[in-house]
Computed example of a mutant assay.
Amino acid sequence: MGLTIMSVGFSALTALVIWIFVNHRDTPIVKANNRSLSYTLLITLTLCFLCPLLFIGLPNTATCILQQNLFRLLFTVALSSVLAKTITVVMAFEITAPGRKTRWLLISRVLNFIVPICTLMQVLFSGIWLVTAPPFVEMDAHSEYGHIIILCNKGSSLAFHGTLAYLGVMAFSSYFMAFLSRNLPDIFNEAKFLAFSMLVFCSVWITFLPVYHSTTGKAMVVMEVFSILASSASILSLIFAPKCYVIMFKSEENTLHQIRNKRHQRSKILLKR
């Protein structure tokens, strides 16, 4: 019941953030960091928070397959959106000379293909998993004395850890790109928030693996659900909470006039240095 309340509560909170962003879609802070990617990330996080509901209750073959494949697919979309945002931030501030190929990549919107390509690769991995050794319902009579626990067996351990490794590579890539651009000067530069969110995300799942393998029965399922909620909450809070704070409580800073004044002041400071 507690995990269900957390799942529904976080998804409702994410829906509220979407409403705030849509209502303030023409403000500088929403436009500054790729509005379409922000919408994609928020919608995906809403579904990520609802994924734990598949882990709760009596499992069957359909829910066992959806548990692993759906949440990995959604996390792939979320992490690829973060990766695309970090690359956009780096390229937007580092590229100044005309005629560079990297500048052409930014202008031609090639970065928009990052999300579909990464998602397609995860779909391919999931398809191989389902064809070779799909998840199935298992009766566990050894974890608790006098009880038989009905749970989902992952099927292929290699596929399970391989898809997690794929998510880890994307998360680390996003962290690395955001870390490189953490000191870029801009009013709405979100690189620091992206880097910290990916650091927390990686920490959650690195902690998850040893704890997951040291538990059995219901505790194993609870650990996986908690990891999904914690990692999703880290992305939501660390990336979007600062923006929502400025939009709702610092609206005077969310104007073009204020941005120009601050940029002028920062340029003076840089010249003095």
Rank of each mutant, 00 (worst) to 15 (best):
T4K: 13
V8I: 12
V8P: 02
F10A: 15
T14M: 03
T14R: 11
L16W: 08
I18W: 04
F21E: 00
N23A: 13
H24M: 03
P28N: 14
P28I: 15
K31E: 11
R35G: 00
S38M: 00
P52V: 12
L54G: 00
G57D: 12
L58E: 06
L58Q: 14
T61K: 15
T61E: 06
C64H: 09
I65V: 12
L66K: 08
L66V: 02
Q67G: 00
N69D: 14
L70G: 05
F71M: 15
V82R: 00
L83S: 05
K85Y: 00
K85F: 00
I87D: 02
T88E: 01
V90T: 04
M91P: 01
M91W: 04
I95H: 01
K101V: 12
R103V: 01
S108H: 14
S108R: 14
S108E: 11
P116C: 15
T119D: 13
M121L: 09
V123N: 05
V123T: 09
G127R: 07
I128W: 03
W129R: 05
V131D: 09
V131G: 06
T132S: 07
A133I: 07
V137E: 00
A141I: 03
Y145E: 03
I148W: 09
I149N: 10
I150G: 06
I150R: 14
G155C: 15
G162T: 09
T163E: 02
L164I: 04
A178K: 10
F179W: 03
R182T: 06
N183A: 08
N183W: 15
P185N: 11
D186M: 05
I187T: 07
F188T: 15
N189M: 02
E190F: 00
E190S: 09
K192M: 03
F193K: 01
A195I: 00
F196N: 09
M198F: 01
V200Y: 06
V200T: 12
V200N: 10
V200A: 11
C202K: 02
C202S: 10
V204H: 01
W205K: 08
W205L: 11
F208L: 12
P210Y: 15
H213S: 05
T215K: 12
T215Q: 15
V222D: 03
E224M: 13
V225C: 04
S227M: 06
I228E: 08
S232G: 15
A233Q: 09
A233S: 11
L236W: 04
I239A: 03
F240C: 13
P242I: 09
K243G: 06
K243N: 07
Y245Q: 11
I247V: 14
M248L: 15
F249W: 13
K250L: 11
S251E: 13
E252S: 09
E253A: 12
N254I: 03
K268Q: 12
L271M: 13
